[in-house]
Design a protein around this nucleic acid. Sequence first.
RNA 1: GCGCAGGUGGCAGAGCGGUCAAUUGCAUCAGACUGUAAAUCUGACGCCUUUAUGGCUACGAAGGUUCGAAUCCUUCCCUGCGCA
Length: 309
Amino acid sequence: MGQEGKKLLVIVGPTASGKSSLAIELAKKLNGEIISADSRQIYKGLEIGSGAVTKKESQGIKHHLIGIASLKSTASAARYQKLARNAMRDVWSRGKLPIVCGGTGFYIQAAVDGIIMPSVKPNKKLRIKLGDKTARELSEMLRALDLKRWQSIDKNNKRRLVRSIEIARSLGSIPPLKSKPIEADVEFLGIDISKDELARLIKKRVKGMIRRGFIDETRKLIRNGMPEEKINEFGFEYRDAVAYLNGIIKSKAALTDSMAKQSLQYAKRQMTWFRRDKRIHWSKNKTETTKIVKEFFEKKTTRISNRPN
RNA sequence: GCGCAGGUGGCAGAGCGGUCAAUUGCAUCAGACUGUAAAUCUGACGCCUUUAUGGCUACGAAGGUUCGAAUCCUUCCCUGCGCA
């Protein structure tokens, strides 16, 4: 594949919708490699609970950015952006097609659209200090620092207020939003699935997780001295597993139900994100998918389209 | 059968004469998203409509007291606990 003909396929969809297996199938057909876009799968040690593909499932297709970050480190969109872009370059350099596949919309946006995030590292001390302030107090602080950003920010969202204050304190103000989109022809393929069907698949997936040792995976985290608050941050699956191990969730059946319910809620949030992106071509079945992919490869012009806001 | 405590919107659970279509949490629906994104945050949530200081139906059921009742009284039905 020449420099001018670079292509990138992005597969999105809610959790458990079958993204991974579709990606593998397409990778086999299209000489591709998969770049995971998942904020949990990126960690080493969360493979089961995050639903990362197993070696067997991957069928020899190379997967990038799964299990590569230490649990002691913190994953972030900025970090993911760098890693994903490097991975894409790497795949292209070997003449193959990178297939970004995952459910973390913000990570995909960071990597593909290249939103330029202010290069201010998280300041733990500051975050702790600001942690017990009210949203109102934080809002006032930000207003004094950067009126412009203050006007557009969600004034109830403490987490965002803290980050903005963090940036403004370091740079003086929050730089205007810019992005450097990836220089390639990008196709967004979305898996369109009914709610009932998704609920069924989620239940199946959760059961499979538990069967494959999800609880042991969590137990291992605890045994390795990971504080419970930290484990809770790894997502609702782990929060539930901890609750189960502590006897708050009484049975495996209850654990399964809770995980499934929360997965469905998560799937909804994911869809709220994806629905907004009009570049995504939604596919209900194999026929539609084949058509979308075919058109993508027949298209000659290389257009770089920004995510509309 | 007697005694006690209860029966409130999909669920849990406040309210105990007017300002109650009814606090709050969960669930549900919709939305936001500038380095935590499986996170964080917002709105809607009895029904109807000309969307309003609007109408209608509602706090187990039926009566009653009152200008006015989810709130007080009577009877009935149901639930839990205690005693038989």
